[in-house]
Design a protein around this nucleic acid. Structure first.
Lengths: 196, 196, 196, 196
DNA sequence: GATGAATGAGTATTCATTCAT
DNA sequence: TATGAATGAATACTCATTCAT
């Protein structure tokens, strides 16, 4: 593997475990078997490296969402598809949720993350609204619903440490992920039925 | 106000804004109109100060939950009461959610927070289960439900920056908080109805 | 015991073990079951406390030497008496040698110690010279001899850690001290005989 | 000169003058025309720098002793050779005696120094014993003799401040060093004669 | 691309000392 | 006498970044 990519991956892992501030360039250099100066050669600065990591995640996530959102289908189907896609994305990109969760709470990278976030959220809302005639689910407040489902999904990953102790098994195992998805879909059906 | 308490409050504010690592003892000393040495005199270390802040929050939260959980009432009523109490607690203690969210993602203080968290979660689950005869809501998976509602509630506060831009108004205003509560109660009713 | 004396003794012990710089007023306060402010009340400053300890030692040592030096007797007897008295003094005041050895090598207290030292040395030389007619031991260089015997005596105490490992028994036991004295007296006789 | 060596030499000088604790990294950085961070880059820590200095001294001393000890010759010649070599070493390495004297009295670095010391002492004893038939000097206690001569030699250097005032001339001048050596050799002859 | 050396600015922490009571 | 609280100055050490090769 190229040095640039080795640095990238070591940093991704360390940032997700210890956060941006608590991760040092020396640690990244050691973990990637390179040296501090090379990090600056490839990424200009520690923050530049961090941004590169975030950008890659957001590119992948946007792409994933777009692929899923603009298929035709009923509101319920679209909602289900987004839920599944989001869960799969977070399961595959373990570091993403941890990094974002920390950074959104405050920090230098907050603004950039918020922009991505808002962009994605609005894309989702547009897609969902687009799927149902105003008349059908007039009681549904799309923003509130989005926050709720986003919260339900993402919390499962950011609190996986706590959840592991509650469930007494790995929350990210195939079985437990399937169970979580099932629960989320049940929630979606329940709310649509109630609002219909 | 005593110096100890001035330090405590300044630190609480700064930690919640910038996180533990990005907050310096110099900043805390300046913000509290004291000096760095006094922080160590009263709290032994920067981390000791952080723990003192967390401990106070967890004491308050535990007390709040206990007051609300063990009133009599139907399952739905208890669930509604917990939701309201949690939202109120987070609204009153703005820093808490931000601090915990960051720390739970990883870092030196994670273990201690996780213990508190699990303790509270199990207390809630026990109280809810205790409220409904096994037969009534046999389809409800209490752990999944807890994660979901916890996620719905807490995300509203930790993502308040994003939400503010979506709603184009302050998510923590009385009006918006009331709206959020209403939504959460609607979700609770929907899921209970679906599972009943 | 009075607080003043408790501080004095705790400080004597700690200074001799770790040296002046490496001993903190907090340690002294804890070891003496008092508090830092009281040290300053009784001794003005950390250095004042140190000086008080040194002064007490030098007072005792001067007195001891004076008692022994100005008895009548032959040169050899006087030399033997000084050797014995010095060894006994160092054996009884374990901290003294350690403190002086460190301080004489350099440090803020050096000047004061050197003054005491020179005063004692000159007193000894005067007494020894006074004891023998210029003609008897005209080959003896009193200063050189003094340095030699002082070195032989004091090194046994300051290097007691090393010596313990060489002898495989406690250098400060009665038996070993007696052996050391015997050796020193043998050295004294040898040199006087050679110079006579 | 390289920065590493500049730091090394400045530190050697400062440690010998003021001791380990009273010497600050800032002083070392200034005296060596470098900066504090570079000290840690090259020596990991202040103590690491100190150890490096000690290690170099002990390497040189061991080598010096070995060169001198295992030449053939009578007991008296070997003793004389060791005395001369030791005096020359201390005269050339002014800092060594001061640093060791202080550290041997106690502190964090004591153990390491004691090990070197014991190693050298045992090497000397072995060499001396090896040089005389058991029968010749059966009254000589080699350990006591070693302590005595070590004390006579080293004290001349560690107390050079006091001695200067007594002699009223520089104890480290060529003339005074020669005089000291002469005295030490006289002592050696006297004791061998007495014990023979 | 890669790397050892170098650096200014910063960190948490500790210190002896003082003050008010 | 005794003590808890307070403080300015200092400490060892670490950091991200730059530079020369």
């Amino acid at each position: 593997m190229e040095a640039r990519e080795k640095i990238f991956q070591a940093a991704d892992r360390l940032f997700s475990i210890n956060g941006f501030d608590a991760t040092t360039t020396r640690e990244i250099a050691e973990a990637s078997n390179t040296n501090k100066a090379l990090i600056h050669y490839h990424f200009k600065s520690k923050r530049g490296l961090f941004q590169a990591i975030l950008d890659r995640y957001f590119d992948n996530l946007s792409e994933t969402l777009q692929r899923v959102l603009f298929k035709n289908g009923a509101t319920g189907d679209r909602l289900a598809a987004v839920i599944e896609a989001y869960v799969d994305f977070l399961a595959k990109n373990r570091s993403y949720a941890l990094i974002v969760q920390r950074e959104i709470a405050g920090g230098t990278g907050r603004e950039r993350i918020m922009e991505h976030m808002i962009h994605n959220f609005q894309m989702i809302i547009t897609a969902l609204r687009d799927a149902y005639p105003e008349s059908d689910y007039r009681n549904i407040d799309a923003e509130q619903l989005l926050i709720s489902f986003y919260g339900m999904i993402v919390t499962y990953f950011t609190y996986s440490g706590v959840i592991e102790r509650m469930l007494k098994s790995d929350p990210l195992s195939q079985a437990n992920l399937a169970k979580r998805k099932e629960h989320l879909l049940m929630m979606a059906q329940a709310v649509l039925k109630a609002a219909g």
